[in-house]
């Protein structure tokens, strides 16, 4: 037996999952099904889409309509699904590399269209599946197997990127702040347009070890100490925010949703 939540929504014969001890992805995956459960969504109409990487193995464990696609392309597949059948609640589970490197173009355009897709980025700052290469969210100066002398790239702020491209809901939480993560995913799903939740996960196996950041407990302590809720941040002086990162709801500005706008075009012919 497992908890009633897990028994209800997971493919029990596929568990335990393949993720490493201390990997945060299981926390994020549970947050997604918890959000679905709390929203009492019709599971037959939920479609979970992923790309490639550690994150993207999640749908295989989740008992919904699930699609494990090619590297970086989850949002493009999801665009076809949502556009073809807007009744489906489409949730994309992706990683930092999958979503913002190889899939970066699909991210900005999915955000721009404001189609009703909720994207949850399992952001562990590294390419885990291939063994620890640096990603667009590996902090500058940190190491990866392809950045043996320290990464000189700058880091993407995925929420700012999505917001600038047109996403109408963005939020960030960490696997330490799992309760907040659940709330943000719920609010993201409730937003009719494109939503992105940056779920800061932990990779003790590659990112942690390569950068001597310790095990997942130590990395989660670091997340706890360095995350500042956006509500609190507005009251803090800039020097208190140096080196910190924001969590919470970062943007919420509903705009006309793509499939509803397209429906108007179709209906104009049905009336005629």
């Amino acid at each position: 037996m497992a908890s009633s939540l897990i028994e209800k929504y997971m493919r029990m014969d596929k568990l335990p999952h393949i993720w490493c001890p201390g990997c945060g992805h299981g926390i994020v995956m549970r947050a997604v099904v918890k959000a679905i459960d709390e929203l009492e969504l019709n599971r037959e109409k939920i479609c979970i889409v992923s790309g490639i990487g550690c994150s993207s193995r999640a749908p295989g464990y989740m008992n919904f309509n699930t699609l494990h696609t090619t590297h970086g392309r989850a949002l493009a597949f999801a665009t076809g699904i949502k556009h073809a059948n807007p009744e489906l609640e489409v949730i994309v589970l992706t990683g930092d590399g999958d979503c913002t490197a190889i899939g970066g173009n699909h991210l900005i355009h999915a955000a721009r269209r404001n189609m009703g897709i909720t994207t949850v980025v399992f952001n562990n700052n590294i390419y885990g599946m291939t063994g620890g290469q640096y990603s667009p969210t590996t902090p500058t100066g940190d190491k990866g197997t392809t950045a043996p002398y320290g990464n000189i790239d700058k880091v993407f702020d995925i929420c700012s990127l999505a917001q600038a491209a047109g996403a109408t809901y963005t939020g960030r939480a960490t696997v330490y702040h799992a309760q907040l993560l659940i709330r943000l995913i719920k609010d993201g799903i409730k937003n009719k347009g494109f939503s992105l939740i940056d779920a800061i996960s932990v990779c003790p196996t590659y990112y942690g070890r390569k950068n001597k950041k310790g095990d997942s407990v130590r990395i989660m302590e670091w997340l706890k100490d360095n995350a500042v809720n956006v509500a609190a941040a507005s009251k803090l002086p800039p020097e208190k925010l140096a080196g910190k990162f924001l969590i919470g709801e970062l943007y919420n500005n509903p705009q006309p949703e793509y499939t509803e706008e397209y429906k108007k075009i179709v209906e104009s012919f049905q009336r005629g």
């Binding site: 699609l67 597949f77 059948n85 699909h106 355009h109």
Partner: peptide
């Protein structure tokens, strides 16, 4: 839908086909 690129186009087509279209 006019997609952002060629890869996205075939991806969207596969996704749409999975819904029965």
């Amino acid at each position: 839908v006019q997609m952002e690129d060629e890869i996205g186009s075939i991806a969207a087509v596969i996704g749409a086909s999975l819904t029965g279209l």
